[in-house]
Simulated assay, not measured.
Amino acid sequence: MAKKVTLDQEECIGCQSCVEICPEVFGFADEAEKAFVIEGSDGDNPCAEEAAAACPVACIEVE
């Protein structure tokens, strides 16, 4: 079963580290100054877990 990636936008501080590490899975909303999970992205991508581990506020979950 494919892994699901979630990002709590209320907790996101907009550092963009996830976008830099894994642009295939994460995007950045300039207006909201928050990251988001790209719809239809592959949660099995190894960089998704790397991005979750790098998040300074731990608002990304890969399950």
Rank of each mutant, 00 (worst) to 15 (best):
residue 59 C to A: 09
residue 34 K to M: 08
residue 14 G to D: 13
residue 13 I to K: 05
residue 17 S to V: 07
residue 17 S to E: 04
residue 21 I to A: 09
residue 57 V to N: 02
residue 61 E to H: 05
residue 15 C to E: 00
residue 16 Q to I: 06
residue 23 P to A: 10
residue 49 E to R: 06
residue 29 A to G: 12
residue 38 I to L: 11
residue 5 V to P: 02
residue 34 K to I: 06
residue 14 G to L: 13
residue 50 E to C: 14
residue 6 T to F: 12
residue 51 A to N: 06
residue 31 E to P: 07
residue 16 Q to R: 09
residue 38 I to D: 01
residue 17 S to M: 11
residue 51 A to F: 01
residue 12 C to D: 03
residue 39 E to A: 15
residue 61 E to K: 09
residue 8 D to S: 13
residue 1 M to A: 14
residue 9 Q to L: 02
residue 33 E to T: 14
residue 34 K to N: 06
residue 37 V to C: 01
residue 22 C to E: 09
residue 50 E to W: 12
residue 48 A to H: 02
residue 39 E to D: 15
residue 58 A to S: 14
residue 30 D to F: 11
residue 57 V to W: 01
residue 27 G to H: 05
residue 13 I to Y: 00
residue 23 P to D: 04
residue 44 D to V: 09
residue 38 I to F: 04
residue 24 E to S: 11
residue 2 A to L: 12
residue 57 V to P: 03
residue 12 C to T: 06
residue 50 E to Q: 15
residue 21 I to D: 03
residue 3 K to W: 09
residue 45 N to A: 06
residue 8 D to K: 13
residue 48 A to Q: 01
residue 5 V to C: 00
residue 26 F to W: 08
residue 59 C to F: 03
residue 28 F to S: 04
residue 52 A to Q: 05
residue 10 E to L: 12
residue 39 E to K: 11
residue 62 V to W: 02
residue 55 C to M: 02
